[in-house]
């Protein structure tokens, strides 16, 4: 069970959180091409190594936030609030 540093609440066990998938996937605009829209909907970097992802502290403050985690070691590099630019 991961120990996740919520930027609002501090370190909390993983069972308090829900996962939000890859971060910084920008929702394609309504006038996007079919290909652009398909890419937005389905294609992910699924990176091995440093990976930007979203979590929600669902059973805590309820907030979504972003994280950078190494997907090989599962160690968090940093977490940051929505809208913040990662360090």
């Amino acid at each position: 069970m991961l120990l996740i540093p919520c930027p609002y609440c501090g370190e909390r066990p993983e069972i308090e959180f829900s996962y939000g998938g890859e971060a910084h996937v920008v929702r394609a605009p309504a006038n996007a091409t079919d290909a652009e829209w398909t890419a937005f909907l389905y294609q992910r970097s699924n990176a091995r190594g440093s990976y930007a992802e979203r979590w929600r502290h669902a059973h805590g403050c309820g907030r979504f936030f972003n994280a950078r985690r190494n997907t090989v070691t599962d160690f968090f590099e940093q977490t940051y609030k929505i809208g913040e630019v990662p360090a």
């Binding site: 829900s18 929702r27 929600r56 907030r63 979504f64 929505i82 809208g83």
Partner: peptide
């Protein structure tokens, strides 16, 4: 609810 929170917090801010 989770889906609504997601859009509210991260998309329709």
């Amino acid at each position: 609810l989770n889906m609504m929170e997601d859009y509210l917090q991260t998309e329709f801010t």
